[in-house]
Amino acid sequence: MNARPTDVVAFLVRQHAEIRDLFAEVEASEGSAREEAFHRLVHLLAVHETAEEEIVHPYVRRVVDGGDAIVDDRLREENEAKQLLSDLDEMGPHHPDFLKHLEVLRKDVLMHARAEERYEFIHLTREGDPARLAKMTAAVEAAEKMAPTRPHPGVESATKNVLVGAPMAIMDRARDLIRKVMGEDK
């Protein structure tokens, strides 16, 4: 019911807020509700980080003075988080250590998101070209709306069946989609 922000920074900040709330939801729920919330978290995190890597970080490298160093820091954080996310997804919400690992991921992601807002996005707002930022929004939005991945036919083992796509698979699809949307002025 939120009106869609048109600026890519506002859009990404809104996703940060949603991700943060989703962590709380996963933690507070149980059984199939937790599974379902966790899948939404995996999906949103995967498309969010992919969009940043495909669109935002390269642009910051190009236009911001010192952008390379800023983006290197962010990528380091992102790679760490991606690894944790993969492990957690592998583990699944029924694993006895799930909550412990979720907590580590939550703190990592929260810190990474704040670092983006404070040290990276602020340059986009200051130095980015408004038309370009608006166009980026379209791509990020398209990625967010991307339908959940369906399990491959034939590999529907009982436990994996509920998993609607491992993080890496979602990222691959999001990347293709974003490239298509951004394609014409690449």
């Binding site: 506002a10 900040v13 807020a17 949603e18 943060r20 709380a24």
Partner: peptide
């Protein structure tokens, strides 16, 4: 409005 999050959190 600017952080897109609800204060009840």
């Amino acid at each position: 409005m600017i952080e897109h999050r609800r204060a009840e959190k």
